[in-house]
Amino acid sequence: MSGIVSGMPPGHASRPAEDRQPATTAPASPPGPAAPPPRRLGAAALRQNSVYIAFALLVAFDLLVTPGFRNPTVVRSLLFEAAPVILIALGQSLAIGTRGIDLSVGSVMALSSATIGLTMDLDQGLAIGAAVAVGLLCGILNGMLVAWLRIAPLISSLALLVAARGLAQAMLGGARVDMPFDGPLSTIGQLAPGGIPAVAMFSLLAALLFSFVVRRTVPGRYALFVGASRTAAVLAGHPVRATLGFVYGVSGLLAGIAGVFATARLGAADANYIGVQFELDAIAAAVIGGTPLSGGRISTLGTVFGVLLLVVLDASFIMNNVNANYAQMLKAAFIVGALFLRRGAA
């Protein structure tokens, strides 16, 4: 985008009027000149950093008010909970960055879990690999539907949401399959060196890598370009289809890993429980974190903090004994409020 803008010749350059009014043309470009600049700057900064501010306020509130929040085991279990959600929220923000959406992530987690349930008696390492591969396959299928058949991402991932959950339930026959108390899976579900869960570290590393891919690599830049304008990307000769395939493949892969994490934490494969409505949390986290639904922009750090915010919010409700139904309404109001404040933020 910036390449296009900077490449444009300044229209006034050859005119004689340029000598007379060189300064007035430049500041006229930002819209809404009526508001005084300092206040607008403050409000904009507040909007752009709203997720961090909200997170800091919530944690401060919990430290002061919520009983037992300071307990390290609480922090640890929160991180265990956040790890898979961070992964799918990253994939989600990539899809949203291309002006798409991936509703299938929760169901793909369930399918990954069901795969573990079916194969873990053979070999747990194999089961984990198979689960991740199944996630990747789902993502690639989704990407092919979006890129080559030009189906709206909302619909293709919706079909996958319904079908993958159904397949997962059919695979396990609706039952919960408990896993053995030892082996790689239970290690994933419990390993926490220094009180910080290994899965959380993995998710943060994945976020770092993700940020690098989005900012510095060709597929990442292409993804944002497609999100900014698919037509422009096509006309510029960029490989739009391969890019979309890559994007949804990544989302599926991350959902597959998230399914492994959630299964390991639960201690059982359960197609009815794992990942239910996680797609909604992932979308909310990405959007609250500053990835607009209109595409072309991704905030990795914002997405991670968006997830942490939602996870801590859930925990705050539970630990303060707020009725679960009030909690759900408050959460909805919170999401709408956060997005209302964000509206207009660049």
Binding site: L145, L158, V162, A163, A164, G166, Q169, A170, G173, G174
Partner: peptide
Amino acid sequence: LSAAYQGLASGAFLLLAVIIQSGLSQ
């Protein structure tokens, strides 16, 4: 067939319908 297959069938059907729709649109 258990009720679980209902999701599978509905999803597959939706997918099929959308693919055909997209082909017709093009």
